[in-house]
Structures are given as C-alpha cells and as structure tokens.
Write a protein that binds this DNA or RNA. Structure first.
Lengths: 340, 340
DNA sequence: CTTGCCTCCGAAAACGTTTTCTGTCACTGT
DNA sequence: ACAGTGACAGAAAACGTTTTCGGAGGCAAG
C-alpha cells in the first residue's frame, strides 16, 4: 500500500528549537554544520530534526543570504535546439548545488520579453541567467548573464558561441569538393550573430572556390519551419535550380528535404542538402542529413560553466566570449551532382 | 552600440519610499494596486518607481505571502518524452502568472531523489509539483503534487495518465487485422503503471483475437535504448521469430527498427513495428513508425491544469485521476506479413 | 583570588516585503 | 460649534532564516 500523502503544517526552526530546548541560533548552526555547538547538543538537535522531518525554508534562507542557488534559463520556446541545450545545462548543473529554472517566453510573447523577465528575476529569484538566442540587444540585469547564440551587436555580455563561420565554410567546401557549382543558401534569423556568420562562411566558401555569388540563390528561412519551406520552394523552382542547398540550421534543412520530395526531387541524387546544428532529428530523417555539428549540449554545458565561474569569481571588467568548435558530419543527404 | 550591462545595487522599497517622501507601506500599495492611496500620491510614487527602475524582490514577497508562484517539474532527465511534456506544461502556464522550475534528477541519481527534492522544495520554493514518471511510490510533500504517468500503486495522489490499455489493444488489433498471428512485445519499465497497462492491453488484445499468449514473445526493454535493443535482438533471433513487434514506447520501437535493419530484415516487409507515445522522432525515422499517440503535450497541459485547480480550490479528500484518450496513428512501419 | 582566554549558547538584528492597526485631517450634517 | 464619518497614510508586526555580538561558565596561568 502506498503512503503517498500530504503533511500539512510546515515545521519551522522555532518548532525544532523549542522541542529540543535550545535557541533557534543553535538549530541553525546544526543545520548548516557551523562550529560553536557541543557534540552532545548537536546530536540531540539533529535527532529532533530527523524526528520532526524539519527542512529549512529556502525562501527565508535566500532572503537572508541574498542568494537563491537558482540559475534561470530564458528560452523562446521548447524546440529541439533549446531542449538539447537544456539537457547540457542540466547535466552540468547536476552536482553544483544549483537548480535550473526555465522561463519560456512563448512565441506569442512580444519582443523584449527577456528584459521584462530579467528585470523581475535578476537579483531576486535567480543568481544568474542564461539567455538563449535573445531577440533583443539591450539587456540590463543585476546579476551575471551569459548569452548563448547571442544577438548581433551584443558586446557587453559574456557569450558562448559555436564556430559558425568555420562550420559554414566546411559545409560549402564539402559541397564544392563533391563537384557542386550551383549552391543555394537558406539563411537564418537576420538578427542573430550565428546566422550572419554562417552566411559569411557561405559567401567566403564560394569565393574561395572561385564561384560567383548569386543573390538569387539565397533565401531567408528565419530558422522557422514555415519560412524555411517557403525559402526552399523559392530556390527549387528557379529556372536553373541549385544542385545543392546549404541550410543555416537543421530544421530548415529538414524542410528543404521535405519540399524537394514534394517537387519530385530525390536527395541526394537530384539535390544535395547540408544542415547546421546536428540536432538528433537530423540523423533520424530519411535520408540522414549531412550537417555541421555544433554540439548543442556542449554549448549548454559551457554556458553553465562560464556562469558558475562568474558567480564564483565575480565578473571581469570585459566580458568573456567563448567559442566552441564545429565539425562536419557527413551523412546521406549529400553526393555528387547528377550532371556535371 | 549595445547597452547591455549590469546595474549593481538593487533598489529596495525603502529607496523608493524615501525618494518619494512616503512610507514603504504606501509604495507597496501602489506597486500592488491596493486601495487607500490618493491619485496624486499614487502617480507621484509611480513616477519615482519608473525613474529608479524599481522591481519588488520576489523572494521577500514570497516570504511574506507564503507563495512563490513557481511550479516545480521533477523529471528524470531531459529526453524526448519529458521535453514534449515540458513544452505542453510551459504552454499552459504561459499567462497564468506561474513560472516553471525544472529539476532534473539525472540518471546517476539514486532512486528516491524525488523525495529528497520534494521535501526540500515543497512548501518552500514551489507552490506545487508535477512529478514525471516517478521511480518511487512513497512521496510526501507539503504542497499539491500531480503525478504524470505514475508509479504502480500510487493511490493517494492526483494523477494524469493516458488510456494506455485501450491504446495497446488498438495497436494489437491493428496488427491482427493486417494478418499477423505471431506478435512480439517489447515491455517497458516494470514499475510504471503505464507499462503494465500496455502489457495488459497486449495480452488481452491477443486473447480477443483468439491468439495464444507465448511468454517467449515478450522481452523487457525498460523504456531505454540499450535494453530495448537487446530485447529486440532476443525476439528477432528466435527460431520462429515474430512477424510483428509492438514496442511499449517509441524509443524502443526505433531500436527495434534499427536492430531489424542490422539483421537484414526490412520494415514493414519482413517485420511490422508499432510504437507508443508518438514522440516527434517517430514520424521522422525511416520508415515512419506506426504508433499510439498519447499527445504528450496534452498530458503536460492537463497536469498543469489540474495542479492550478488544486492550488486554486484546495485539495479534495480523494485525489483526482484524469485519463486522456489515445489514438492509433498508422504510418509506414506496419503491413501484412509476407507469408501467411 | 584575580585575570584572561576559550567554549558554548542565546538575544537580537537584519534581509525586503505585505498587511493590520492606528491616527490625522478634512468634511458633512445637525 | 461639535460629533461623526471617510479617506488617506504611517508605524509596526510578521514571514523564517543566518549571523553578529555578547554573556556565562569553566579552566589555566599568574
């Protein structure tokens, strides 16, 4: 038989103190393992604590100590990217004594929700914040903040980013080495630095291969399903359609493959597709997608590591920017173009 | 140029009060829109608040009001199932004034981590808790708790579950109607009610079709990748291997397909596979998997709805159990057996 | 026996709110 | 002119901790 249930009145330090015949100061010292309590008293108090099942009130403790041991993560919504990131963050936080609090802005949220959350939460309910793919550039907080995949122009904030430029170049070089000369690009959210860097990598990759940049071969997918599908349709219905498409993230790449199928094109025979991110889904779809791995979980872990460091050592005058390597993962969605 | 930065000293209600030349009581009334403040004073105080960028300290507020407006979600790890559930929960919570706090037990956690978290957090840092697929049966908390996909034998706790039995029967009936007579089962975690119900549905589905239950056709996959793969291997290397396998969740079904491919069996020609859950991945893999949809997001939403109701109206004497319907989703992983 | 130190422990302040209680003042009705 | 009323605002208590400060007592050294 299950004994699941509810114990109603919460026991406070006063209850323990009076039952043990000591002052609350002593109880507090026992709870926190402070010195200044004799062994005899300590064990007696401890026994009472165990008997009564006392747990100290974290809110009261936070109020006094001015820290909550909570890390807030602000994400726009729980999609594959942020889910992976959360996983990494949660893993890294496992035995740190900190807990994770997730604020999901929701797509309905007007731009700037981050700032509203932050000014409420910072210095109040969380000791630090991890900001994922923010939609604003002006952020003010009264506690340490780390931005993952930051907004363009963010300068005065610690950041964790992947080597977006190198990754994009590797993707293009891969396509070029397969013989592609006509390579399209589904761009990402124009306001994110990562998207810009990937586009720069695409352009420079073309240039390095001696290929001319054709503005008609670039379409904006916004990192979103619908917009990406439209972008794919635009590119694939061009009179001289590209033989390969590099999509700025995997979700877009998946849409490209889907639209290609709709149009009767098979991948990789008629069209090669490369994505970016290496979200788990990219390996599961058919065909598995060649992509640039940025180890999203590592981003999450690194963000946590950096934030904990800031909490421990204080914030330096100039914020730290960390960059994580990327790596091309070749799967089945790329091959040589049919007609050279 | 970005103006991201840090404002250091946090402004308290005292700062506002002294600057506005009123008492802190008046400031508090203005902040919370209480009556008893003249329009003139109110607007003057409000101006000072805006000027100074004052935000009330949530910890202090919680301490006084005895509520934090935080909902804790205890998950074992962030895998596809819990990610979907979180998504639903976050959506439902969007405009409720509550925030989501996620505690990830981590696989390393010893059994019973839920209880440790709960006794710490309940009545202290969260107003209510959603417990996802708990590993223990004895839970005690000083605030409302809703269990999703509860442990076997949980009686005295509000729960939200899917129609696991009906779903499993539908899956088996689907296979039977395709002509399968030799149907294997990859079972789930033995300690979860959902897993038991699915197994019961499997057995009764067989019986209803007049098929004999063969204990060799059942192998335990534990809802985990590795164990599921082993279970699949066991079943598929039987002398008279089953022509169809029903897996107790999609992650297991994906492993079954993978192992089948390893063994040179093609799905659905040589083997039909049905999963359970309808996680996003199940539609992406090749072939897309026929599965029983339990709308995990709905489970999350329903859990939040139930919890908010408990918070609002108080807890009834006998806890409420809610059941959500399931629905068979036929995709490409099932077909008629090759040889009848 | 006094002085001084050390150990153990309790009183009380502090953290930043919300809310109750009380008081002041102006205004109304007689 | 005076009691009664209502609107407004401040003082203070309360929420449950942690920590500083100081006091009491024991013991060693002078």
């Amino acid at each position: 038989m299950s004994t699941i249930g509810r114990t109603d009145a919460r026991i406070t330090i006063d209850d323990v103190a009076s039952r043990a015949g000591v002052s609350i100061a002593t109880v507090s010292r026992v709870v926190n393992g402070r010195y200044g309590v004799s062994a005899a008293t300590a064990s007696r108090v401890q026994r009472v604590i165990d008997e009564m099942g006392y747990e100290s009130n974290l809110v009261a403790r936070s109020m006094r100590s001015q820290e909550t041991r909570i890390i807030a993560v602000l994400v726009c919504g729980i999609e594959p990217f942020s889910a992976e990131l959360l996983k990494g963050a949660a893993d890294e936080l496992e035995h740190s004594g900190y807990s994770l609090m997730i604020f999901s802005g929701g797509r309905s949220g007007t731009a700037g929700w981050e700032q509203r959350y932050l000014s409420q939460v910072s210095g109040t309910f969380a000791d630090g914040t991890i900001l994922v793919a923010p939609t604003v550039v002006d952020v003010e907080a009264s506690h340490p903040v780390v931005a993952v995949d930051p907004h363009l122009g963010v300068a005065n904030l610690a950041t964790v980013v992947a080597e977006n430029y190198d990754g994009a170049r590797a993707a293009v070089e891969h396509l070029v080495s397969l013989g592609h000369r006509h390579i399209g690009f589904v761009a990402g959210r124009a306001d994110l630095e990562s998207a810009r860097r990937r586009e720069a990598g695409y352009r420079d990759g073309l240039a390095a291969a001696g290929l001319e940049f054709d503005p008609r071969l670039i379409a904006v997918g916004e990192f979103q399903e619908e917009a990406a599908a439209n972008a794919a349709r635009t590119l694939l219905t061009l009179p001289d359609r590209p033989t390969a498409i590099f999509a700025a993230n995997d979700e877009s790449a998946i849409q490209v493959v889907r639209v290609a199928a709709e149009l009767g094109l098979s991948v990789p025979e008629d069209l090669s597709v490369v994505g970016f991110d290496n979200i788990p889904e990219s390996a599961l779809v058919e065909p598995p997608i060649t992509t640039v791995d940025q180890s999203i979980q590592s981003l999450g872990r690194e963000a946590v590591r950096l934030l904990l460091q800031l909490l421990r050592d204080g914030e330096p005058a100039t914020p730290e920017h960390r960059t994580l390597p990327t790596r091309l993962v070749v799967r089945k969605s790329t091959g040589s173009p049919r007609r050279l």
